[in-house]
Amino acid sequence: MTRAALLVCPTSGKGRAARLAGTVAARLRTAVDSLDLHVAGSAEGTADLARQAVDDGVDVLVVLGGDGGAHLGVQACAGTSTALAVVPAGTGNDLATALGTTSVDDVVRALHEGRTRPLDLGRLGDGTWFATVLCAGFDSAVNERANGMRWPAGPRRYDLAILAELATLRPEPLVVATENGRLELDALLVAVGNTGSYGGGIPVCPDADDADGLFDITVVAAAPRRTLLRMLPTLRTGRHVDHPAVRTLRAKSVTLSGPGWVGYADGERLHALPLEVSCRPAALTVVSAQVGA
Results as ranks from 00 to 15, higher is better:
Thr255Trp: 00
Leu189Thr: 15
Ala110Pro: 09
Gly125Gln: 12
Thr128Tyr: 01
Asp120Lys: 04
Gly199Arg: 05
Asp48His: 08
Ser34Glu: 15
Glu184Ala: 14
Thr168Ala: 14
His71Leu: 01
Met1Glu: 14
Pro171Gly: 08
Leu95Tyr: 12
Val39Asn: 01
Gly193Pro: 02
Ala177Asn: 02
Met1Thr: 14
Ala208Lys: 10
Gly122Glu: 13
Arg145Pro: 02
Pro152Phe: 03
Arg29Thr: 10
Leu49Arg: 15
Cys77Phe: 01
Asp120Ile: 07
Ala131Val: 12
Ala78Ile: 06
Ala245Phe: 07
Gly258His: 03
Arg19Ile: 03
Ala4Asn: 07
Ala110Gly: 07
Ala78Asp: 06
Gln75Tyr: 02
Thr97Leu: 07
Gly213Met: 08
Ser34Val: 04
Leu119Tyr: 03
Trp151Asn: 07
Asn194Gln: 14
Asp94Tyr: 06
Ala50Trp: 08
Asp139Ala: 11
Arg247Ile: 12
Asn147Tyr: 00
Gly263Met: 08
Asp139Ile: 14
Val262Tyr: 01
Asp48Arg: 15
Arg247Thr: 15
Gly114Arg: 11
Leu72Cys: 02
Leu270Ser: 03
Val254Cys: 11
Thr80Lys: 07
Ser253Gly: 15
Phe138Ile: 10
Ala289His: 12
Ala96Glu: 09
Leu84Ile: 11
Ile162Cys: 14
Ala96Lys: 12
Leu124Ile: 06
Val175Met: 07
Thr195Asp: 03
Thr255His: 02
Thr128Asn: 09
Arg230Gly: 08
Pro173Cys: 10
Thr285Ala: 06
Val241Glu: 09
Asp209Cys: 12
Gly193Ile: 11
Arg145Cys: 13
Val286Phe: 05
Leu270Tyr: 08
Gly92Asn: 04
Ser257Trp: 00
Pro155Ile: 06
Leu229Thr: 10
Ala283Thr: 10
Gly15Thr: 11
Leu228Ser: 04
Thr227Gln: 11
Ala53Thr: 07
Leu174His: 09
Gly100Pro: 03
Thr80Pro: 02
Arg250Met: 01
Asp67Gln: 09
Gln52Ile: 06
Trp129Gln: 12
Ala161Cys: 11
Leu229Met: 13
Arg16Tyr: 04
Leu49Ala: 15
Ala4Thr: 09
Thr82Pro: 02
Trp261Lys: 04
Ala282Lys: 10
Val86Ala: 12
Ala187Asn: 12
Arg239Asn: 11
Thr23Leu: 06
Ser257Leu: 01
Ala96Ser: 14
Arg280Asn: 03
Asp126Leu: 10
Val87Pro: 01
Arg156Cys: 02
Glu44Arg: 15
Gly15Arg: 13
Glu276Ile: 00
Arg239Pro: 00
Val277Pro: 03
Arg250His: 11
Leu183Ala: 12
Leu174Gly: 11
Leu134Asn: 05
Gly213Gln: 05
Val39Leu: 10
Ala161Trp: 01
